[in-house]
Amino acid sequence: MREAILDKGANMGENKGVLFLAEGRDGGLAKITYELTTAAHEIAGQLGGEVNAALFGTGLTRAVAELARLGVARVYVVDDPLFAYYHPEAYLAVATRLVRDICPSVVLMGHTDTGRELAPRLAFALDTGLCPNCVGIEVDAASDALRLTRPVFGGKADGLYSLSEDEPWIVTIAQKVFEPAVAHEGQAAEVVAFAHRVDAGSFRISVTERVEDSSEGIRLEDATVIVSGGRGIGSAEGFAELKELAAALGGCVGASRAPVDNGWVPANLQVGLTGTVVSPNVYLAVGISGAAQHIAGCSSSNTIIAINRDPEAPIFRRAHYGAVADWREVVPALTQKCRAMFG
């Protein structure tokens, strides 16, 4: 990391504008990439300058072609097996070099597993400011400074921030905040293969094993229906009941933090600020009180339906439909009804 600081960019350009770090997934682009594109255009529209994208990974042909149709000026690509998985030293080295080369005013990343790891490293390597997990970005017309809004106190309040003068300003953007951009056949960005010059031999962190959980079914962020349980579910057996309901609805099971901490469900089912941010068509919150940090992960769902015994539970202030009831009595009846209806 210290090496990166000493590695001054050789050809400092005058490009400015906005650079965003695209993310690939399953050979194509991850959803956040389309949202970043929209955010980048909105900012560049006010600050001036080009919108450029960067994409690191391997086997990127289809993803790059898609990215090039999103209305960006240039796509900087590092397509190399060394970048198949996120490695902090590899990604930091190439991101630092790229930013020094093209000198954007703003660097955008998604507040994803990659973005929230890489953005602070990049900010400290470049010694500039970072605002993470932004849900709002405005450009102050008088000063051209960014005014950034992000949830704080576990989502209980928002904070409005500005960054110090030194560019580039680094911003990670919360998922599902910006409308996804649409690809157009007529648009063709210039694709630049970026020479990364990263030497894996210099890494101080080595990844010796990578284990994927064999959790079956749909990923939380892709689900159109999520049946989520909280502390009120009380046990792993309780979650088995929710799983049956989710199956009847063609959806999957999620959880607030308490069931994860109690070991009733695996950690990757956690919805919230520190888990996955979801926006399904229907979010059924069962036995979830509605702590702000959980709400921050599901509030953009189209319809939230809450079942809770406590009429004062905060979840009822965020849900579109609610029922004050014991889930143990409602869920079996609901599962039966849904099997008949949607099965």
């Binding site: 900010a123 010694d127 500039t128 400011g129 970072l130 605002c131 005014r147 704080v152 309040a157 928002d158 904070g159 409005l160 921030y161 500005s162 960054l163 110090s164 030194d166």
Partner: peptide, 8 residues
């Protein structure tokens, strides 16, 4: 590097 303007 990052200035808090206000909480709300």
């Amino acid at each position: 590097r990052a200035n808090l303007v206000k909480f709300f």
